[in-house]
């Protein structure tokens, strides 16, 4: 067992509204795990807390590698995330977006390599077009690429199939299957198809 994410009595309060209370779980690699629950139950909030984008009001989230706790920087580098409210830079092209995220993460990837990544999601012909001209499904595929670019051991997906056609949904399923073979995938969803992508981890609002 190498990678582990431990949620210890996590709670989140926005102003005076309690969104999450006393959530505990241990997520281990390899595998895919599903957080489910009705709209407004706190799935996205919990995923953002796991990603380190939100600080829990109570409890803590620990990232462990071979039992050793990771620093905040190591934790950030270990995570890739796709969420509906995480946007890309719309005036920039698909290639420029990938180039930026690669450089920001310290990856020395050549344009030819980035174009190969775009080929994987059938976006190579649109590599030099601004993201603003993309359909929502194309943006979703590009977001998934930016999340996978640094080959993170932990992949967090918030409603990954939203706005995707059959081919897009198959790509998501394939990515989850591949990633779950060696790392951790956590999916927050209500979609009946996506509920079957992994083992039930937490059901919120139950």
């Amino acid at each position: 067992m190498k990678w582990q994410i431990v949620l210890r009595r996590v709670g989140k309060v926005f102003d005076e509204r309690t969104v999450l209370r006393d959530i505990s779980a241990t997520i281990t690699a390899p595998g895919a795990w599903v957080i489910s629950g009705p709209n407004g139950s706190g799935k996205s909030t919990l995923l953002r807390i796991i990603a380190g984008l939100l600080t829990p009001t109570e409890g803590e989230v620990l990232y462990l590698y071979n039992g050793e706790r990771l620093t905040a920087r190591q934790q950030r580098q270990a995570v890739g995330m796709v969420a509906p409210d995480m946007a890309l830079y719309r005036p920039l092209t698909a290639l420029e977006n990938l180039r930026f995220f690669a450089r920001a993460r310290g990856l020395s990837l050549r344009d030819s390599e980035l174009l190969e990544w775009l080929e994987k999601v059938q976006l190579r012909p649109r590599a030099h077009d601004p993201v603003a001209t993309f359909s929502t499904g194309m943006v979703q595929r590009l977001k998934l690429l930016t999340a996978l670019l640094h080959r993170p051991p932990v992949l967090l997906l918030d409603e990954p199939g939203s706005n995707l056609d059959e081919a897009g949904a198959r790509f998501i399923y394939q990515t989850v299957k591949e990633h779950a073979g060696h790392g951790i995938v956590v999916i927050a969803t209500n979609d009946t198809r996506e509920l079957g992508y992994g083992e039930p981890l937490i059901q919120l609002g139950a």
């Binding site: 995330m81 830079y89 920001a104 930016t146």
Partner: peptide
């Protein structure tokens, strides 16, 4: 405003 802050937060440290 353009909702790119979260992607930036995950990729880049606050100092960067």
């Amino acid at each position: 405003e353009t909702r790119t802050a979260d992607a930036l937060r995950l990729a880049v440290s606050s100092t960067g």
